[in-house]
């Protein structure tokens, strides 16, 4: 964190899908910087552009306008996109996207192919990473034989294969139960701390965001707020107050303001639980 070169620099990034009247602006002149070693959450409702941003950072998609630098490299001038995807960034997908025909260890070797020549070294590296995510005894299991949480751990190990400077995770716990979800976020936080890897997580779950150090909120292709997390309860309340659900609740029940100001923990927990339940309801749980 003392390193002054930002791992991500985004300037006036615009991405438009389609053209003419049906054109959709997924990103609208967005600018942001992330410092090396930061663990950042990008939040926002469905369709706010958070996944699009992640794809741009991973060089999976080209911007319509604007520039992106990752680890000092201008993505519009990349000579070898494949090399960049394999080495500089690591991707963790919502549905893990492990290849079903490969064992856990072979899945981790996928990004190593073409990077590390010897098969033996690839194996050793994969085995080391599996140990790192606590699955040393599962190396010869196929994804179909692993639980959801274990699969996602393998996916995280895979994203770390080439020791990337940046890990991009798109709803990494979106398909998991709450306990596995916490474990995954704890693993990411631990990796951030021990390896110094910069991590950007896209999520719409406040509990996931809590595990990070900085939250970027997006709406309609723009960043609408950017702040560091100091006090988790404070963060939760801010999120609650800003949400549509929270606002309508507060408008109808002015007495709630008092609880917030007095920080009545029991009542607040109750309120936040209601908020979580609402957020987890089907119409809101659609894909990003």
């Amino acid at each position: 964190m003392s390193n002054h070169q930002p791992i991500i620099r985004v300037e006036d990034l615009t991405k438009t899908y389609g053209s003419g009247e049906t054109a959709v602006r997924a990103l609208d002149e967005l600018s942001v910087e992330v410092q090396t070693g930061e663990f950042v959450a990008v939040m926002g409702p469905s369709g706010c552009g958070k996944s699009t941003l992640l794809n741009m950072l991973g060089a999976l998609d080209q911007p319509t306008e604007g520039k992106v630098w990752v680890a000092g490299e201008d993505l519009s001038k990349l000579k070898n996109v494949d090399q960049f995807r394999a080495k500089t960034v690591g991707f963790v997908f919502q549905l893990h996207n492990l290849l079903p025909t490969m064992t856990a260890q072979e899945n981790i070797e996928v990004p190593l192919q073409g990077q590390i020549g010897s098969r033996k070294e690839r194996r050793e590296r994969a085995a080391h990473l599996l140990e790192l995510v606590g699955l040393g005894d599962r190396s010869h299991h196929l994804p179909g034989q692993l639980s959801g949480g274990q699969r996602q751990r393998v996916a995280i190990a895979r994203s770390l294969a080439n020791s990337p400077a940046l890990v991009l995770a798109d709803e990494p716990s979106g398909a998991l139960d709450s306990q596995s979800s916490e474990e995954i976020m704890a693993l990411l936080a631990q990796l951030n701390e021990s390896q110094g890897t910069s991590i950007v997580v896209v999520t719409h779950d406040r509990r996931v965001a809590q595990a990070t150090q900085r939250v970027l909120r997006m709406q309609d292709g723009k960043i609408v707020s950017d702040h560091r997390i100091t006090d988790p309860i404070e963060e939760d309340l801010r999120m609650f107050a800003q949400s549509q659900f929270g606002q309508s609740l507060l408008a109808n029940n002015p007495s709630l303001e008092k609880f917030i100001q007095e920080r009545d923990i029991a009542t607040l927990r109750h309120l936040l639980q209601a908020y979580d339940d609402q957020a987890a309801s089907p119409e809101d749980a659609g894909s990003s």
């Binding site: 991973g58 999976l60 494949d82 090399q83 960049f84 995807r85 394999a86 080495k87 991707f91 997908f93 996207n97 290849l99 079903p100 996928v110 990004p111 192919q113 073409g114 990077q115 895979r158 080439n162």
Partner: peptide
């Protein structure tokens, strides 16, 4: 298709 997309995202060249 998704698997192929994943491989591409993980840095596999089209040739591979």
């Amino acid at each position: 298709t998704r698997e192929i997309g994943t491989l591409r995202a993980l840095g596999w060249p089209g040739k591979r």
